[in-house]
């Protein structure tokens, strides 16, 4: 009987540690109720019936920006299962290669993942307007992006905002040997649906 005591103490200690760890990393995300968001009219009968952002978003992969949700992660993990088409005849297209951009700039190289984008969007949403489907044919410009053009059509409005520089500028130049950046270097696509 006495011999089991150290184990009990250890177990209790571990439980306390686990509880402390859980307490130390609380979910700090907060969503403003619809009636107080400055847009919805608290006097409207509809405002009380609509789903609150907190009720829908709190269970999804957390983020520190935008809706405070990692939308691609939430989709990949199956936390949400949004429909990909309404019409039976629509071909749902997915492309999985990566494109490297900003090869000669001063900031880290941009890795553009087709997969994360085509999980949500159709090819026609980006090609041929605003982006020509030819490597090197698009002159990307942060000033235009910040003004809501090019990538800024979505990033800064509905997808993660432009404060998150490193999510796009994610490939350090040093990792490529520090020399001149190579030309277009696509990652071969995986077999996909």
């Amino acid at each position: 009987m006495k011999r089991s005591r150290p184990w009990t103490t250890l177990l209790a200690g571990l439980l306390v540690l686990a509880a402390a760890a859980a307490w130390a990393q609380p979910d700090l995300r907060r969503w403003i109720p619809l009636a107080k968001d400055g847009l919805h009219d608290p006097a409207s009968p509809g405002t009380r019936q609509l789903q609150e952002p907190r009720d829908a978003l709190a269970r999804l992969a957390p983020d520190g920006a935008g809706n405070q949700v990692r939308w691609v992660q939430a989709l990949e993990r199956g936390e949400i299962v949004p429909r990909a088409n309404l019409l039976e005849g629509t071909e749902v297209r997915l492309r999985e290669d990566d494109i490297l951009l900003n090869l000669n700039g001063g900031t880290p190289i941009v890795r553009f993942p087709h997969r994360a984008h085509t999980l949500w969007l159709d090819c026609s949403n980006c090609h041929e307007t605003p982006f020509i489907s030819k490597a090197g044919a698009n002159k990307l410009d942060m000033r235009r992006i910040l003004q809501g053009e090019q990538c800024g059509l979505c990033h800064g409005a509905v997808s993660f905002p432009l404060t998150e520089c490193n999510r796009c500028h994610s490939v350090p130049r040093a990792s490529r040997g520090g020399g001149p950046a190579p030309g277009y270097a696509p990652v071969p696509p995986k077999a996909g649906p």
Binding site: I80, P82, R83, A84, N85, L86, L87, T90, V92, L119, W120, L121, D122, S124, N125, V158
Partner: peptide
């Protein structure tokens, strides 16, 4: 509930 492509394409 829906991916972007449903409203912005279909």
């Amino acid at each position: 509930r829906f991916r972007c492509k449903v409203c912005h394409s279909e």
